[in-house]
């Protein structure tokens, strides 16, 4: 590998890492801050992708589809929290796993009934459809760079929301002591509903914005679910900063792993996770 290709692979790794952060960001919120093990996170991702496909078909523009899709999924997330998730806060993690696993099956079946089992494609918006030539036979799609930019903005926004705003303060307080926050007169129930809805919308947003790159197909959520959990665990539960660092680490490790040691490429992510957990049991930025 000469130096130019090393740089390109570096770009690939960073870009893939940012993409992972985008998908994992919703899980960081729900799992990291609310403490809910949400196995259905991948299903929300899939839901977003299918919404992007069907709404873009209706409205004719991906941007329109994303705006409408976000509104729909926020409402959907709130309804879901109010109906089901809220019954889990007082319970053991096992109940959470049971319920959210059940949701995966329900969503897959719903998807099959509503949208069928075919593979679909969403066209890249014309504004970003160009490619930048890098070498004589390789170019880089502008849309990928655009997604990277969105990811960075989103990461910044999440960080500011949680660390610097009043709502963020209440969320953090609720995470560490729910009862105390409630007795101070803060409507913690509503805040949790909101956080869950944002988490769902983030997952769906990732599915939507990624749909032109990834295509839209059954069971697409299952693939992202596991790597999302790995990101949150490596980063340290509840840390947006950690999730970002972990995403980039995994993106780079997978990219260079596939090229340099293809025989073990499938394991690299998990080896990395094991190594980090031995070194820091609470994750990179987790509080032990």
């Amino acid at each position: 590998m000469d130096f130019a290709f090393f740089l390109i692979q570096l770009l690939n790794g960073l870009q893939y890492g940012l993409l992972l952060f985008l998908v994992a960001s919703g899980l960081t919120l729900i799992f990291g801050i609310m403490g809910i093990i949400n196995l259905a996170h991948g299903s929300f991702y899939m839901l977003g992708a299918y919404l992007a496909w069907s709404l873009a078909g209706l409205t004719g523009s991906l941007a329109g589809a994303i705006v409408a899709g976000i509104l729909l999924t926020v409402v959907f997330g709130m309804a879901l929290e109010w109906l089901l998730i809220r019954r889990l806060y007082e319970r053991d993690h096992l109940f959470q796993v049971l319920l959210t696993y059940g949701l995966i099956l329900v969503f897959e079946e719903m998807r099959s009934i509503l949208w069928g089992d075919d593979v679909h494609g969403v066209p890249v918006p014309a504004l970003f459809s160009a490619s930048i030539p890098l070498t004589e036979n390789l170019s880089y799609p502008v849309y990928r760079l655009f997604i990277s930019g969105v990811c960075l903005l989103l990461a910044l926004g999440l960080y500011l929301l949680i660390q610097k705003t009043r709502l963020g303060m209440m969320i953090r307080a609720g995470a560490s002591n729910r009862d105390m926050v409630q007795s101070l007169g803060i409507d913690i129930k509503f805040i949790y509903t909101l956080v869950f809805a944002i988490g769902v919308a983030l997952a769906a947003f990732a599915g939507m914005i990624n749909a032109p790159l990834s295509s839209v197909f059954p069971n697409m959520g299952g693939q992202v679910l596991i790597v999302c959990f790995v990101v949150v665990v490596i980063g340290g539960i509840g840390s947006v900063k950690g999730a970002m660092a972990a995403s980039l680490m995994i993106g780079l490790a997978e990219t260079f792993g596939q090229v340099l040691v293809p025989e073990v490429a499938g394991m690299i992510v998990y080896l990395l996770m094991a190594a980090v957990l031995v070194w820091r049991p609470a994750g990179l930025f987790g509080k032990a």
Binding site: G13, Q15, L138, E254, T255, F256, Q258, V259
Partner: peptide, 13 residues
């Protein structure tokens, strides 16, 4: 997995 970017770069090289 469906992330092909690293391998496509490899093909180009």
């Amino acid at each position: 997995q469906v992330e092909f970017q690293a391998l496509l770069t490899e093909i180009a090289s």
